[in-house]
Structure formats: C-alpha cells, structure tokens
C-alpha cells in the first residue's frame, strides 16, 4: 500500500512536471499575442494621458520627495554607513523603486483575469495564463524607466557608476520570474475569492514596512533578522543598494535564495493556475 502510494505521488509529480512544460511551451507559442497585449497595455497606461511616458519618471521622483521629506527630514533616518551613499534620498529611492515595481505588479496581477472575463468566457482556446504575464511585462518596462532615473540620480549624487550595477538586471530577471509565479497564483485565486484583493492590499502594506526600504537592515533586531530574510524582496532591495550605490558584489547567498524562491514560485504558480483554469469561464 505505501509503495503504491509513493508511485501515485511520483505519477502526480510527473504529471505536474508535464503540465509545467506544456505551460511554458504555450507561453512561447503565444509570444505574438503576449507582445501585442503588452504593447497595448503600455499604450493604455501612458498614451492619451497628458504627460504620457513622463509619468514613469514623475512617479518615482514624487515618491522620493514625499518619503524623503517625512523619513529623512522629519525623522532624521540615516542610511547604512556601509551603503556607499550619504544621501538618504538616494538610499531611499534605491529601495523604493524595486519595491514599487513588485507591489504594483502583484496588485494588478490579482485583477488580470477578472478584468478580462470577456475574453476568458467567449474566446475559444484563449490562453488566459498570458494575462498575468502581460501585466508583469508591461510593469517591467515602467520599472526600467524608473531604473534609468535611478542610475541618473546615482551618477548625480555619487559621481560615478560601478560595473556591479549590471547585476541588477539579474535581480530584475528574478523579480519577473517571481511575480509571474505570484501573478498566476493570485489571479486564479481571486477568480474564486473576491476578498483576496483586500487581503492582498494589507499584505503589500505590511510588506512595505517589513522590508528595509526606508530604514537600513542594520536597525532590525538580530534575533528576528532571519525572519525578515525569508522575504525575497529583502534580498532584492539589499542587492540593488549594494551593487548600485556601494559598487560592491551582491551577497551570493541572498541572490541564490531569491533565485530558488522565484523559480519554485514560478513552477508552483504555473501548476496552480493550470489546475484552476478549467473553472474560470464558469465562475467569472
């Protein structure tokens, strides 16, 4: 009996793996649609508004100003001595930009399916799994603009850019992998659970405070630091600052942890989505 059980579990895993492979393949076969929808999403976000793409620049700057005034000027928070910059503003924005990218992407992913119920219900063979991916891809573009602003600010405040800065593209890659996985889980769950959006809002808000964004990680009590380090965004923010501001190599353990969490989330998200997908048209 236990033996047959194990065989069953093995079969299930094999099946999950096949689902995962098929899923990844479908993403590739639908690349034209993916590109088209991403283009369109970006245009919808920026074309037609008065300032257009300028918003992608204005937003991080405005955030930097608000948080900078409150935490830097009122609360006199200081950056890590080891962070490589004396400017709290730069320190802050360097954590804020990747966090905003993550938070916004995850939040809008949760809506990705419910917003497009028409397609899911009426189009034959619609690959609904690309919807969260489209959301992630279009936020990556906005994020890259934010990163460009960040690089310019770094040059202004620090005077130079370190070659280690290039490593942030590795981080971006893993955030994308992570958010696509989360996007699949959240978007498919929110089809069934309307309350998910509210809960997600709370979690994202808490995440902002429990990730060392506007305060240095050195302020976290050593006893609970390991809990904070479970949060993959901890390593992203740390990595952005180390490579970009301090010009130092990233913490390898942190990067490996991020990579593992991202890939596992991606795979689990894919399988999860695939399992829930057959019921979408009925519930939406």
């Amino acid at each position: 009996m236990p033996l047959s059980n194990r065989v069953g579990a093995g079969e299930a895993m094999k099946q999950d793996f096949r689902i995962f492979l098929d899923f990844s393949r479908r993403l590739w076969t639908n690349r034209f649609m993916l590109k088209m929808m991403t283009d369109r999403e970006l245009k919808a976000q920026y074309v037609g508004s008065l300032f257009g793409l300028a918003w992608a620049v204005i937003n991080p700057l405005a955030l930097m100003a608000v948080y900078g005034i409150v935490f830097g000027y009122f609360f006199k928070t200081k950056p890590d001595p080891s962070s490589g910059t004396q400017s709290y503003m730069l320190y802050l924005v360097c954590g804020l930009i990747p966090w905003q990218f993550f938070a916004q992407t995850v939040t809008s992913c949760a809506d990705a399916l419910t917003k497009n119920s028409n397609l899911i219900k009426k189009a034959v063979d619609f690959p609904s799994e690309i919807l969260p991916v489209v959301t992630v891809f279009s936020s990556v573009i906005s994020h890259l603009i934010g990163v460009a602003v960040l690089l310019i600010l770094t040059v202004i405040f620090n005077g130079s850019l370190s070659p280690w800065t290039l490593v942030i593209f590795v981080y971006i890659f893993f955030i994308v992998v992570l958010t696509v996985g989360l996007g699949w889980i959240l978007s498919s769950l929110s089809v069934y659970l309307k309350d998910l959006k509210q809960v997600l809002g709370l979690v994202i808000m808490a995440g902002f405070f429990f990730t060392p964004i506007f305060y240095p990680a050195s302020r976290i009590p050593a006893a609970v630091l390991w809990i904070f380090k479970l949060n993959p965004m901890f390593h992203v923010v740390e990595g952005y600052r180390l490579t970009m501001l301090a010009g130092r190599p990233p913490v390898v353990n942190g990067l490996i942890y991020l990579a593992v969490v991202s890939v596992v989330t991606f795979a689990m998200g894919g399988i999860f989505f695939r399992r829930l997908k057959p019921g979408f048209a009925e519930v939406l």
Binding site: R40, N118, D125, F126
Partner: peptide
C-alpha cells in the same frame, strides 16, 4: 460576439483574434 477586449480598437482586436487562432 467573439471574445473581444472592450478597450481595444477594432483593428487591435482583429490582430488579437488572429493571434488567438
């Protein structure tokens, strides 16, 4: 009606529909 995206223009929907198939 087919699965059209309400926000897209007719032309964009034609391309999306094609991509779907």
């Amino acid at each position: 009606g087919a699965g059209f995206n309400q926000e897209y223009t007719g032309r964009q929907n034609v391309y999306m529909n094609g991509a779907l198939r």
